[in-house]
């Protein structure tokens, strides 16, 4: 199967919520080499791009939609944007839903934009992540 513009609007909810832990925030801050004290301690908030990880379970659902026929090893991340309502904190339980917003085709390459809404499991808005990916079907 293949992706096309008729699939715009399809939504994929993460199978499980993501429980944000203080030590995971610290591990992530260490991995990006960021010593900012705001990312450490009892009142730690997460670095801005931590939000991308919170959307990964919704992306897994999108990638496993066989009608789209996408393969992770054929995907290149082209652009990424975040809008923040409030910072992500240790203790947050985050739900993610990814929705396909645009599909453009150029030969073997499909450029797909999807938007991931991040909220608490109680529905409080946290952030929106907008991703543009290129999927190359050449030789597939």
């Amino acid at each position: 199967m293949t992706i096309d513009a008729t699939m715009v609007g399809r939504s994929y909810a993460a199978a499980e919520s993501y429980q944000v832990g203080r030590e995971k925030i610290r591990e992530f801050a260490d991995a990006i080499g960021d010593p900012n004290p705001a990312y450490r301690g009892a009142d730690a908030v997460a670095p801005p791009t931590f939000a991308f990880m919170l959307g990964s379970r919704a992306l897994e659902q999108l990638l496993s939609d066989e009608e789209l026929g996408l393969r992770l090893d054929r995907i290149v991340h082209g652009a990424q944007k975040f809008s923040y309502t409030r910072p992500i904190k240790a203790g947050d339980d985050i739900a993610a839903t990814a929705t396909i917003t645009t599909v453009r085709k150029a030969g073997d390459v499909e450029v797909i934009m999807y938007e991931t809404a991040l909220t608490t499991v109680d529905g409080e808005p946290i952030a929106t992540s907008t991703s543009t990916i290129s999927h190359n079907r050449a030789g597939a």
Partner: peptide, 23 residues
């Protein structure tokens, strides 16, 4: 993640970042 440090290192509170995007 590293690029936005130029901005968040300067901010008093990284929570003052409301939007961030790159290509």
């Amino acid at each position: 993640a590293t690029a936005v440090r130029v901005v968040t290192d300067w901010l008093d509170d990284p929570a003052d970042l409301v939007e961030y995007g790159v290509r």
